[in-house]
């Protein structure tokens, strides 16, 4: 039966609804003349009809409820997100705090280098700044990451950040002496400085 293989292939194409008109003609023509193929074709069609004809099953009425009851509980993350949505101010405040702390610490780390305020008669030896005997330094003296030795006179405030200062018996400071060593001291120092600057601005504008 040479006809079978090719024709059966066409039957499947037909049943898949993918047969082109030309092949459909060939199939129909063949079926008219070939009882055996016609029988086979009808058996296929009947098979499909009975399979399709099986009754449609319905899920049990409480199916959805059962599924919903066995879902895992909402994750903590969702609860957290909801909390954040409900408390936007606290969320914003804590975010601000985190970012601010970050910038403070990075500034602290950046300023690890030795530096000193610029006054002509200050003498720098390695990381030690000396106010020489008999000299008068005008203005505030700020030393970062280094030592300060005062043998002469400073007309202004003295600030030593992350270092130490030594005031010789002959030395003299007209303003305040301040040492800042730990990061929290440093923060406090910055805050005070900022506050004083703000007050200064107001004082200036008053004048």
């Amino acid at each position: 039966m040479k006809c079978n293989d090719e024709i059966v292939e066409l039957m499947h194409e037909y049943l898949d609804e993918e047969i082109d008109p030309k092949n459909e003609m060939i199939l129909r023509e063949h079926l008219k003349g070939c009882k055996e193929c016609e029988k086979l074709f009808n058996e296929y069609k009947k098979t499909i009809a009975v399979v399709k004809g099986t009754s449609r099953m319905q899920a049990p009425p409480d199916f959805t409820a059962k599924v919903m009851a066995s879902l895992p509980k909402e994750k903590k993350k969702v609860g957290m997100q909801r909390w954040l949505r409900n408390h936007p101010l606290i969320a914003a405040a804590s975010l601000f705090l985190v970012l601010m702390m970050g910038s403070v610490f990075s500034t602290w780390n950046q300023e690890r280098e030795f530096s000193v305020s610029k006054q002509d008669n200050l003498v720098v030896q390695n990381d030690t700044v000396i106010v020489p005997e008999g000299e008068v330094v005008k203005g505030d003296v700020i030393v970062r990451n280094g030592k300060l030795k005062i043998e002469g006179e400073v007309q202004g405030n003295v600030t030593v950040i992350n270092g130490e200062q030594y005031l010789a018996s002959a030395g003299h400071v007209t303003g305040q002496i301040e040492e800042v060593n730990a990061v929290f001291d440093w923060i406090w120092y910055h805050m005070k400085k900022t506050a004083l600057e703000v007050i200064d601005i107001f004082n200036d504008s008053d004048k």
Binding site: Q58, A59, P60, T64, M68, K75, V78
Partner: peptide
């Protein structure tokens, strides 16, 4: 987004066909 109850409609719509698949 975390709205568990919204899943009920999805179950309702597909429950019969998925159950049918399982049965067959």
């Amino acid at each position: 987004k975390g709205d568990q109850d919204a899943f009920a409609d999805i179950v309702e719509i597909y429950s019969n066909s998925i159950y049918q698949l399982g049965y067959r």
